[in-house]
Amino acid sequence: MKQLDRTELSLLVALPALILAAMVLPSWIVNYVQVSLGMGLVALGVMIQMRAGLVSFGQGLYFCIGGYAAGLAGKYLGISDLFALLLIGILAALIIATTLGFLLRRYREIFYAMLSLAVSMILYGLLSSTEELGSTDGFNLPVPTYLGMAPSGEAARMTLFIITAAVVVASAIALNRLLRSSLGYVNEAIRENELRVEYLGASAHNAVHVTYVIAAVVSSMGGVLWALSLGHVDPEMTNWTTSGSFVFVCILAGTGSIVAPLIGTFLLEILRVYAVEISPNTWQMILGTVMLLTIIFLPKGLWSLLAKSSTAKRFDPEADANTQPGE
């Protein structure tokens, strides 16, 4: 481990803070935190693709693969160990994403969005019509055990929370490394100008493929953790509207920092719970309006308000005028 940057330090500080908070705060809030940590990992998967200029409207696919892989392993193999389930989810995502990646890496822009949506809907169709897996109702997961230990009651709740938080923090630090790595830089370059990337001697296809697989793995971990904390999976996990909500989080929070989508997911989850209660029929309208306003007025998301130095440059009037044609 070389030196940590500020984001990584704050993530490390956040871990004990989260655990401490979980001990004091009422359990319903802790529940939301835990659920949104799982979903936050999927949003991170969407985000690292966005950094390469790719918008996935089908990230729910891997959210669902993670959840169902864990569920199936519990249902048919009787596995309830969290780490084993996590590993099974990762393996499933790894195999499927590596295969699908050969198809998806050829696509950019709206075609990438459409194709990722299409493959996620294949799974949706498949699961919705599979009666053995409860069709659209889905099925329940086992209560997780931990390397042979089976805590109960409050201890079980806390254990799952601590492990979830630890996995998310570790993943976020790894992804932060990814963004600063050569691959991260190449991805930025692909977003800006793929032609130049090829002319510098790198394969944009390979970079996109690797990024796609990493995003899938992270999302599947989110799926396993989410499913275990809810104790249930259903095909809605891979419906395109679910994938859309992950995209929404990234647009709203911005892709400037790895922390942004995590916080964004949590705030959205809390907001959703209240909004659905107060006014169930205008909730999506509020979401849509906020999203429109964000796109128009804060193209780099809410996070850009915090990171002022990078926003100052955004308002240089020459910046847009000089954008070359044919990009």
Partner: peptide
């Protein structure tokens, strides 16, 4: 053909990184 929204030095760093690594380390 440049990376318009990045700084000059970042453009160069990307070029150098790619030149140094046929497959970018993750």
């Amino acid at each position: 053909q440049l990376f318009q929204e990045l700084t000059v030095i970042d453009n160069m760093l990307i070029a150098l990184t790619i030149a140094d690594n046929p497959a970018p380390p993750v």
